[in-house]
Design a protein around this nucleic acid. Sequence first.
RNA 1: GGAGAGAUGGCCGAGCGGUUAAUGGCAACAGACUGUAAAUCUGUCGUACUACGUACUUCAUAGGUUCGAAUCCUAUUCUCUCCA
Length: 388
Amino acid sequence: MTTSFTLQATDGRARAGELRTAHGTLLTPAFMPVGTQATVKSLIWDDVRAMGYNLVLCNNYHLYLNPGSEYIASMGGLHKFMNWDGMILTDSGGFQVFSMATLAKITDEGVHFKSHVDGSRHFFTPEIAIKSQEYLGSDIAMVLDQPVAPGATYEQTKEAMERTHRWAAECKRIHTREDQQLFAIVQGGFVPELRRISAETLAEMDFPGYAIGGLSVGEGKKTTWENLDACIRYMPEDKARYMMGVGSPEDLFYAIEQGVDMMDCVLATRIARNAALWTHDGRINIDRPIYKGKDEPIDPECDCYTCRTFSKAYVNHLFRNKELTAFRLASIHNLKFLKNIVTGARQAIFDNNFEKYKINFLERYQVVDEKVRLDQKRRYLERKSSDD
RNA sequence: GGAGAGAUGGCCGAGCGGUUAAUGGCAACAGACUGUAAAUCUGUCGUACUACGUACUUCAUAGGUUCGAAUCCUAUUCUCUCCA
């Protein structure tokens, strides 16, 4: 398969490029919003488009169970079904092997799942993972893989990695759809040596794109970045590199710094639904009582719809009263916040200025974060003494 | 006027002689969330302090019974239901 990725500029290890797909071109570095069940929770496509996103992630396993991939195919495919004319990347269901481990039993042939919806039993194989994604018709499909949890032994990690490699080969053999690219997934847990082996092994299989999976699943930041480093160095330079499940604003910088091109994460939308918002001055919980009466934007430098339109006081009111619009406004803000970071990063890479861009952001985001903590402590003490 | 039921921590509501500073739920306060089993979860939630413990004060009010009471008795105040 001819490569669909073009590297346009580098700055240190950071890269800017473009990935061409059947439904558009992704400018990298890119963040991709997650819309597991064929929707980015609480948003409509106008929202997603308005933020500048043209690729969303959907989940093959969830759609396979409900409403069913063949059903979606009968409805004209996933793009038509959910009426999104941008790009779609489907995750295979490999992550569910990890996140729903209590409901999954893994063998070399595949994964026995007990449906979280109705308890019914399903056998999910590399073949099913691919056929299902071909039914869905996503622009980028992922191989079925097996991540391991922090604390896995060397043997368990090695076994899962080798199974991931076998499954990758099987997925590639089965995959036929020409308008869909199949990405492989590097595993190797938290063993840098295995990470390297995984990257090298999969590189030889010549996939159109490569992902790094199984990181940022609770292992500690240092471990995350060490293990990314351990594999990304051995991944093909002329293909897109997708770090799965990352992340937070600071994570985006650390990933891009090491040469990651694509990222996705539920964090932005999930914490948004729980009233946590990112700002240039750190993270805040907008439902806290201190935001009552604050007639100012969540982040005065943010150009998202929420910040342009509403005050902290208003969003605070919506959350405190459990109004559904709060989810939408918060999700728009967090997703746009990440979008602005990657757009700025791409420009900085072209300008050969990424390091400075990163430091400027992180110093303020984290230093002031410390200031916020001190403010909280001061308020606490004040409240205590005023009670006396 | 008569008969009956009841008053529990911000609210609702368990408890009906001793592991009760008092189950739950809500509200409140704080926090977490990283390829979405998430509109979820966790902690705090009488007061004070030398704060993973100690002390003090609580179950309408005032008395009483008892080694011991939110729980039993008496009176008072208030609330609700039914009958005239």
